[in-house]
Measured scan of single mutants.
Amino acid sequence: TGYYDVLGVKPDASDNELKKAYRKMALKFHPDKNPDGAEQFKQISQAYEVLSDEKKRQIYDQ
């Protein structure tokens, strides 16, 4: 599964769309709200870390 799929956004998503999707998913799977969501929360955080950084995103998109 790709990072875009993890966040539920298209590859041409804007920074604002990425942030909005990340916040929505992070709230849904945060371990405090969803004890079984810890692994998914890590994936969401990693996806956002890469896609929100312009240089990392360019490398990922290659």
Rank of each mutant, 00 (worst) to 15 (best):
Y22Q: 03
L7A: 00
G2H: 13
K33S: 13
T1P: 11
T1E: 10
V50Y: 09
L7P: 01
G37D: 09
K24H: 09
S14V: 01
D36Y: 05
Y3P: 05
R57W: 04
A21Q: 04
F29N: 02
P11L: 06
Y60Q: 06
G37Q: 08
E54Q: 13
E17D: 12
E54A: 15
K19V: 07
R23Y: 12
K20A: 15
Q40G: 06
K20N: 13
D12R: 03
R23Q: 15
D12I: 04
R23I: 15
V6R: 05
N16V: 12
K56G: 06
Y4T: 00
D61F: 01
D5L: 08
V6D: 03
A26L: 15
A26N: 04
S52Q: 07
L7T: 00
Y4K: 01
N16Q: 14
P35R: 05
D36K: 14
Q62T: 09
I44L: 07
V9F: 00
K56V: 05
D32E: 09
Y4H: 03
G2R: 12
A21T: 00
P31G: 07
K55N: 09
K19D: 09
R57S: 07
K20Q: 14
K55P: 04
A47Q: 00
D5Y: 09
D12V: 05
Y60A: 05
Y22N: 05
Y4R: 00
A13T: 04
E54W: 14
S45T: 13
D61P: 06
L7K: 00
Y4G: 01
L7R: 00
R57E: 01
D61S: 05
E49Y: 11
K19E: 13
G2T: 15
Q58F: 12
D15P: 15
Y60I: 04
Y3V: 02
P31M: 06
G2M: 11
D15M: 15
D5C: 13
Q62E: 11
E17T: 09
G37A: 13
I59N: 09
P31N: 09
K55E: 09
S52N: 04
N16I: 13
G8W: 03
V50F: 09
D32L: 10
E49H: 10
E49V: 05
R23K: 13
D5G: 10
Q62R: 12
E39T: 07
K55L: 10
R23T: 13
E39L: 09
V9N: 00
D36H: 11
D53G: 06
Q46I: 14
I44S: 02
Y3L: 11
D5E: 13
M25K: 07
K28C: 13
S52W: 06
G8H: 02
A21W: 03
Y60F: 03
Q58W: 12
A38M: 09
V9Y: 00
Q58R: 14
Q58I: 10
V9Q: 00
K19T: 10
D36T: 12
P35E: 04
Y60C: 06
L18M: 03
I59R: 09
K28W: 05
A26I: 14
D15H: 14
F29P: 01
K56C: 13
E54D: 11
K24V: 06
Q43T: 08
L51H: 00
Y3Q: 03
Y3G: 00
Y22G: 04
K42Y: 10
I44H: 00
Y48A: 02
D61Q: 05
